[in-house]
Amino acid sequence: MESMISVKGLTKAYASGFQALRNIDLDIHRGEIFALLGPNGAGKTTLINIICGIVRPTAGIILADGHDVVRDFRAARSRIGLVPQELSTDMFEKVRATVSFSRGLFGQPPDAARIEQVLRAVSLWDQRDAKIMTLSSGMKRRVMIAKALAHDPDILFLDEPTAGVDVELRRDMWAMVRGLRASGVTIILTTHYIEEAEEMADRVGVISKGEIILVEEKATLMRKLGKKQLRIQLLTPLSAIPTALARYPLELGGNGCELVYTFDTQGEGSGIAGLLRQLNDAGIGFRDLHSSESSLEDIFVSLVSARA
């Protein structure tokens, strides 16, 4: 897979001595949506800010589309668009003017038609001549996305794009991000909402305490670490798990009214059929079955807490 961003040996130590990033190696593939997950203070924003040129690396090399982001910063940065986490806008400026400003700043000639396209894409065309300070925070977020897209970047960083955004706008944003990926833009997003990564990402990276602890295809990750549980609601409570069922990893819950069977999705066959037959043979009646799959969130929490 061709790499769009390649990070090698990246380390960042702040002047205070705080070690924000430790020897990060990361490759983002061309055209993918990559979700960077991690708890607060893990180093997500620092990593993004270093790639975008806002923070200086202490050591390491970063290539964006083959261009060194420090030595060849013009070529690298003109390909990158950034939507930072904070809503920082020029409050007194008008929407269209600020988006045009961004386009110029990133070295593109003025293009009113392109600005109109971008504003329409983020549903801000009707607000084009409104002062930014009069907009809602969801609209301000969209202004920042429009600014990041104004120079037609090949790589888009979205740092917590849907923090404080209502459900409807979040759906809109996801649709927009998918549209961008379809047009060939490589997207890197950080998020607190695991469902966002689960919904959007092709691959997931988990960062904790300045280290990348895992990078995996989302589907593989969920298959590998995902667990399924079958909860069996019993007709009559049990005081202990019958010896006939000892070979199954079972737990008794709900005051003996519930049997919980945990199995690996990777395992050869789930063993459910066998278990149910055994229950039948043992004369244990049940009235309901409920199966659930662990979410990315469960996986994430178990990963990070294992490290802590």
Binding site: I54, R77, M91, L105, F106
Partner: peptide
């Protein structure tokens, strides 16, 4: 821009 945070854009621009 430093105060409002919009400096991020200038710092990340190819300038």
């Amino acid at each position: 821009p430093k105060f409002s945070g919009t400096i991020y854009e200038v710092l990340s621009a190819p300038v």
